[in-house]
Structures are given as structure tokens and as C-alpha cells.
Nucleic acid binder design. Structure first.
Lengths: 375, 375
DNA sequence: CGACTTTAGCAACGCTGTTGCGTTAGTACC
DNA sequence: GGTACTAACGCAACAGCGTTGCTAAAGTCG
């Protein structure tokens, strides 16, 4: 029965709108979604039933019957996000509105194993559940639909297979070849787990918080390396082998300095050899303009611990480059900003990916083509 | 009534499948689409009714009742594509299968005006309609649904506003500032018209012919400039201002030679100064690897008159670069090929964009957000 | 207090895909 | 030559989505 797709899609549309604006009304929702007022009534009723929305009084128009006003219940659904780096595990608890409600950092042992990570992850998740009195999703949702923990998201460095939830081999971590991390974590935690690359998770955080106007964008991150999480056409772009975002290994200087990846003049290699933050920022800015030329993005968000240390310098350098290096017609508007989530972006984004799979816009089912060759 | 979306979506799914495989059966379609056999029966019946499919005998299984076999009727729908360059107008007629059935080239006057283009376009379209006895779409499709011309696609250099169908200002053509070309052509021709950037149209041609396995790909074109049409996640990527694909103006050599665009070391500038085709191909290949690092594409298609002149040299250079410059794990497979459509890619793609809007996968309606500031 | 405006919501409906089940067209076996 | 079996077909009833039509509700205005 594929009518379920329509229902989920329209519910997701309303939730997306509710995240963006303070209050909702039947009329305005109908206008924005293109649904009839009657249909909106039904959708709103379902969402109130599920506890995602609540009535918020009435608006009295100059003439006529008062309109019922609704608003999102941010505390009705929660998600936990984990950011795994080579040194530490950062956990974040977010609500349905995308607000970070708690965060915690645990150091990880040198060259840690999957089991070591899973143990610390389970510890942290258990603590968060207890501290915030979260409900785990009930099989047949008869129970109280509030404070429900939707699942756990994990953002980490690649390469990894996002669809399968498998880490192919984290750079400079020996125990991480073909680890089915999502599956292992689901078993250990008893919760749905979503795995993704760090920067892709990060850009999801920005998208979830900014709403539908954020259609084509990149989160450019500098943190012991350079990467760019891509949000294209209103969805995360992961690529053919879910390995997109290795933006730092694009060459910006032919015959430039040798990079760890074996090529010469990668953005990352040139960037890390810059004399000072201003020069480094200028190099990154050129890379960002390259991205804009190729992809025509509307928003550039900057993040990552190393970048945020000199955040304003980077932001200004990128904004300047955008203004001066792009064929600056009036219609080519690009918004450049620093992430409002600081060093929590990736963890927060991982959490929001969980919310996004459940309460975001679903993809219509495509063709399940028989796979020909092996991977 | 949004059930129409489901219907169109499933019909488009079946058409996409029919384009890819020689014959269809109820059972296999059901398996691939996830629909029940009954639903597939209804979809197939509708498509036969519309003339898009026809019965093609039966397949006799080892046991049981023979299965009804269907196939696409390529001649049931047609589209005309136009490729506008600074020197000439290239017209192409394609059928529903994406096969080029006719093509014609007309020179254009120096610094031609919109009217001059429209006149030649109308001439060419009229000739093609007459020569191939095409039907124009009937308002209320009671008539014979065969040999229907779905519309006309136009591919040309930007910048342009694809959604509005407006040319913002074609490079080095003085009479082309804010010309509502799609609207003008629709009036002149009495047919639906779709406008898009040349390389974006081109990649649509490849996608339409290759089917759903072609999910993340680029058409890299060298033709008095370097560009890349992007096909991401199964759809054309146009970007926030429908200005994506200016890949040639990504910097690959900081402090390199001055480019026409004002920056230094653009791929295009470095490429055109290369000593010989082999060196030029190597430069382009590096750019392609940059694209792969950032976007993780599964297919790279090469095209454009200047590139195809030394096609094999370019193809080998790119393939070599992909093998040696990417972190060559076994799972990172990239298929590199020359376009099978030669210099007709863009025109053919423009035609297929028309077919794609009518018979391709529809986008679910999003939120019609009120626009805030002016452009 | 009645006319008017705006919003809400019940009830019937249309259309989609689904389910259940009988039918059809063939092979295999005795 | 009949019976069992298999695989695909297709009618009919159904469920669930949004839509349409209409009535009711809750205000303001004169």
C-alpha cells in the first residue's frame, strides 16, 4: 500500500514547516503545502494524536471565526548523536526542533577497537536516557508517545558504506576494516542506529535547523583535514559509494606540495602549509569558490575545531572571495556563515539524521535493480 | 488530488524500466518496483492504452501459464532538442527510447538576436514535424496517441534561470540580457519548451539512455571552454540559481595563468595553454579526479567537439588518473567513457529533458515558501 | 438581532494500490 | 485421456489517501 508514502510525506512537510516557523494554522499550511484545508485538518489531527504537535490557542482575525493555532512539541521526540574522532567520543542529545539539550565528551584510547567504542557509546547513551527520562520506542505505539528517543546517529571519518552501515576502514585506525558498526550498535543499544560520514552528518544539522530554504549548501570543515558535507536539492549528497565530501583532496595547485594521499597540491596540503591563518583562510576560500562554480550553492557554512579557532578570519576570507572571485551578478547570492553549533555540529547532525529518517521527507521508492558485479 | 502523483510516479518507473530492458513482464516489473502484480497490471494497461507500450507476445515458462510480454513503443512519443552555440543551431529529433532519429545544423549570424534564433528554430521544427509526420499534443487526448511530439528542449550556454526559462545573459552575445526564451519559443512554436544549460541537458541525454544505474555522474565537456553537467542522486543538479556546472572555472593552479573570468589558474585557462593534447588531457583528468573526490561519482562521460577530436587520448588520461590518483580501493569503481552521442549530446539531451518532464520521475511537491528579498 | 466573514468539520466520493480468490493455459504423470 | 500441478492472469471487494459539498460555529458590523 503506497498511500502510506503520501501520508508520511505530507506529515514530514508539516513537521518541516513547524520547525521553521513558531506557530502553524490550517490556512497557512494549506497555502504552503498546496493541500486543501480539509487534508491539512486531517494531517494536523494525526500529528496532535502522535504528540508531535499541540494546540496553542487561537488567532482572532479581524472578521470571522478564530483560527486554531498549533505548534511543535520539541520535547516529544529525541535523538542522540555521536561524533567519533581519533581521540574522543562526543555525544549530544537533541530534540525534535534540532536544539541541543545536552552534550558530553569522553576520551577514547589510542587506536581504539570497535568493542572499546561500543562500550563507551553504550555508557553514554544509558546515562543520557536516565538523566532525561527518555522513553525507548515501543513496538506497537500504544503507550505514552512523549519523550521518545528515536535512535542514535553516529558520525565518523570514512571511508564507510552509509547504506550498509559499515565502516570500510577509518583512516589511521587499525582495527576498523569492514566493521558493521550500525548493526553492532543496534544490537548493543537496542535502538535504531544510523551511520554516516562526519561532514555529511554535520550538514544535516544545518539543514534540519534552517528549514526548506536551505536547499543547496555545503558545510566546509577544517579539523585535522578539510572536508565538505554536501546538501544538494534538499537532501544529503553521499555519492555513488557514499564516499563524497573528500573536498580537501581536490588539487588546487598542480605540482604543489605532496599530500598524504599521494597527490600533489591538494587543498588540504596547501592549506596546512600556509604561513598564517589569513593565508590559510585565503586558500580555503579559493576552494570554496571552486565548489560554488561547480555546484552553485546558496549557503556555505564553516565549521570544525581548527577553523573555528580563527572563525571570523575564515568567514571574512570566504565572504570576500565569494564577492570578488565569482562573476558577481546580483542574482548570484551566497550566504556565508559560521556554524551556530560550534564543535557539536557533527554529533548534532548525526542525531538529526535519525530524526530525518523518521520525520524528514521520505524518498519515493525507486527501482530495486539487480546488482550485477561484486563490490 | 495527490493520488495523481503516485500514478505518474509508477508509470514513470515502468517507462524507465522499459527504456533499459528489451522486454517487460508483469512479474519482473512487480519485483523491481515493489508493487503488487495487480497494480502492475493496471499500470501496464494504462500505458498500453496511451500507446507507450505494446504487447510483444508471450514467454512460455517451463511450467504454468505463459506470461504476457510488453515492450516500449519508441515511436509513440517524440521530442525535438536544440543546441544553441555562438555559431550555429543544432536540431535533433529523438524518440521515447532516447534514440536520435534525425539531426540538422543551421549556421547562426554573428551576434544573433533572439528573433533571429526563434525564426530559425521555428523553421527547423516545422521541417522536422512535416518530414516525420509528427502529431502535436492534443488538448484533450481523445485522438490517436501516436507519433506525438511532446515538446522542444533548448540547451545553451548560461547564465540562465532554468526554472523561469530566462536567459540571463549569454556570454559574448550582446542581445541576450534577460530574455524569456522559453516563453517566446512556446508562443512561436505552440509547443511546450524547456530551457537549460548545455551541459546539464547533455548529462540528461546520458542518464535517459543509461537508465537507473546511472545515479551519480558527470558529463565533462570541452568545447571552447570546460564545463560539467551533473547528474546527482538520479536527477539533474542545477544548484541554487540554476548556475551549476561552471567546472572550468575551478582553480587548479593557484597563481596560475589569468583566466577570462578574472581569476588565476582556472582549469579552463590551464587546460587551453597546455603544450599538446596529452598534456591538456592530463590537466582535465586532474580536474575530473577533483570532482570525484568531492562528489563521489560512479560515471564520468566525456564529450564536446574539442575533446572528441582527441577522444581516446582524453579517455585514457582520465581513466589513468582515476586509477592512480584516487585512493584505489576495490569498491571505488568509476566508469569512464566517451559519449556515444558525439556532438549531438546537448541537443539530444535537451530533447530528452522534454521527455523527462513528461515521462520521467516526477518530483513530489515541496513547500511553496514565500520569497523574502529580491534577487 | 440579522447579514456577513472566516474557519472548522462531518459525510460522501473518487482514485490509488491491495487482498482474496477463482480462472486460464500450459506441463507432467499415470 | 484424464488428473494433478504450476504459473500467471484478472475480476471484485476493500482500505486509505486527499477532495468536494455542505452545514455549523464563532466572531464582527450595522
Amino acid at each position: 500500500m503506497h498511500l502510506a508514502f503520501l501520508r508520511d510525506y505530507h506529515e514530514a512537510l508539516v513537521i518541516a514547516l513547524a520547525r521553521t516557523v513558531p506557530t502553524l494554522e490550517r490556512g497557512t499550511v494549506a497555502e504552503v503545502t498546496g493541500l486543501t484545508p480539509q487534508a491539512v485538518s486531517k494531517v494536523l489531527a494525526r500529528l496532535v494524536e502522535e504528540g508531535l504537535l499541540e494546540p496553542a490557542g487561537v488567532r482572532r482575525p479581524a472578521l470571522g471565526k478564530p483560527a486554531a493555532v498549533y505548534r511543535l512539541v520539541p520535547g516529544s521526540r529525541w535523538a542522540i548523536g555521536a561524533h567519533v574522532t581519533r581521540r574522543e567520543l562526543r555525544l549530544v542529545l537533541t530534540d525534535l526542533a534540532g536544539t541541543v539539550r545536552a552534550s558530553a565528551v569522553t576520551p577514547l584510547p589510542d587506536d581504539f577497537t570497535p568493542d572499546q567504542l561500543l562500550a563507551r557509546l553504550a555508557d553514554g547513551v544509558t546515562t543520557l536516557i536516565a538523566d532525561h527520562r527518555l522513553t525507548t520506542p515501543v513496538p506497537d505505539g500504544g503507550a505514552d508517545p512523549s519523550r521518545v528517543l528515536a535512535g542514535v546517529g553516529i558520525g565518523m571519518i570514512g571511508p564507510l558504506d552509509q547504506a550498509a552501515g559499515t565502516v570500510r576502514g577509518a583512516h589511521r585506525l587499525r582495527h576498523w576494516r569492514d566493521v558493521p558498526l550500525a548493526e553492532l550498535a543496534e544490537k548493543k543499544l537496542g535502538l535504531p542506529v544510523v551511520l554516516d560520514k562526519d561532514v555529511t552528518a554535520g550538514v544535516t544539522a544545518e539543514a534540519w535547523r534552517r528549514g526548506p530554504a536551505f536547499r543547496d549548501a555545503a558545510l566546509v570543515v577544517v579539523d585535522a583535514g578539510v572536508g565538505a558535507g554536501l546538501w544538494l536539492g534538499g537532501a544529503a549528497h553521499r555519492g555513488a559509494h557514499t564516499n563524497a565530501s573528500e573536498f580537501g583532496h581536490a588539487v588546487v595547485q598542480l605540482d604543489g606540495p605532496l599530500c598524504a594521499c599521494g597527490r600533489h597540491g591538494c587543498l588540504e596540503a596547501v592549506h596546512e602549509r600556509a604561513a598564517d591563518p589569513a593565508a590559510a583562510a585565503a586558500v580555503l576560500a579559493t576552494g570554496v569558490v571552486n565548489l560554488l562554480q561547480t555546484l552553485d550553492l546558496g549557503h556555505i557554512v564553516l565549521g570544525g575545531a581548527d577553523l573555528l579557532r580563527d572563525g571570523e578570519i575564515y568567514r571574512e576570507a570566504v565572504e570576500h572571495a565569494v564577492r570578488t572571485q565569482l562573476p558577481g551578478a546580483g542574482w548570484l547570492t551566497v550566504e556565508v556563515s559560521l556554524t551556530s553549533l560550534g564543535t557539536d555540529v557533527v554529533a548534532a547532525g548525526a542525531a538529526m539524521q535519525v530524526l530525518n529518517t523518521r520525520y524528514g521527507l521520505p524518498d519515493p521508492a525507486g527501482l530495486r535493480l539487480p546488482v550485477s558485479g561484486p563490490g
